[in-house]
């Protein structure tokens, strides 16, 4: 297990956001977490990357306990969070955005090499490398966000709703991108409301509903389940 979340609970003030959530991710796998708006998916990711503190439970990452660690150290350990809404630096160029993804790395040559590799994978970004990120289309911005995440050399990539606001064609393009990332040995935790995308790339799934895991298991189970439909519709 590269990541195991053990019974975490989290409150925003008095409102319970996560209730005894446990999630495990095997090294090198793609796991998806689905659920309606407000189910707590993003909160799990925010807890993982240290943006919010959990109230109880434990988070273990490749044999180390990481809850309570600062976001900087979490990135250093290899968990990189590509947030919902991308959160690019809009006035900075694509290149600068990618450089910032590698903020914690010291190996200049490696950074250069990785950047070239990314431009090979995303030729469209190469064309736009000097353009400011805010001027790109939604699909291109999502690519920059994912590429920026990759620049940190993650072991585990957290993708929060990468399909948000993208056209169906762009969503289809995400499938090979995520699979490619996974093939280079990066584990992926994909949070999605777009269930089609989630089912196509993941091998294992968790369904969240109002802060609780209501279903988990092999992805085939999800494909045949009608609970998935309900979780997706969120009633």
């Amino acid at each position: 297990m590269i990541l195991s979340i053990k019974n975490i609970s989290l409150y925003y003030g008095k409102a319970m956001a996560l209730d005894n959530v446990s999630i495990e991710i095997e090294d090198g796998s793609v796991v998806t977490m689905i659920g309606a708006n407000g189910a707590g998916k993003s909160t799990v990711l925010r807890a993982l990357s240290g943006l919010v503190k959990i109230n109880s439970g434990e988070i273990w990452f490749s044999g180390k306990r990481i809850d309570g660690t600062s976001p900087t150290n979490i990135v250093k350990m290899g968990i990189v969070h590509v947030p919902e809404g991308r959160r690019l630096f809009p006035a900075l160029s694509v290149m600068s955005n990618l450089e910032l993804g590698a903020s914690l790395r010291k190996d200049k040559a490696g950074i250069k090499k990785d950047m070239n590799e990314i431009f090979e994978h995303f030729p469209r970004l190469l064309e736009r490398r000097n353009q400011s990120a805010g001027t790109l289309s939604g699909g291109e911005q999502q690519m920059v966000a994912i590429a920026r995440g990759l620049m940190a050399k993650p072991k585990l990539l957290l993708l929060d709703e990468p399909s948000l606001g993208l056209s169906p064609i762009m969503v289809d393009e995400l499938v090979p991108i995520i699979k490619n990332i996974n093939q280079t040995g990066v584990s992926v935790l994909l949070v999605e409301q777009n269930i089609g995308l989630a089912l196509r790339v993941a091998t294992k799934g968790y369904a969240l509903q109002v802060g609780k895991v209501v279903m988990q298991g092999d992805i085939e189970l999800f494909k045949s389940s009608d609970i998935v439909k309900r979780a997706y519709l969120g009633d």
């Binding site: 990357s49 969070h81 959160r87 690019l88 910032l100 914690l104 920026r148 940190a152």
Partner: peptide, 9 residues
């Protein structure tokens, strides 16, 4: 983007 920056470490 403060949060974006935090997430880059």
């Amino acid at each position: 983007d403060l949060e974006g920056a935090i997430l880059q470490g």
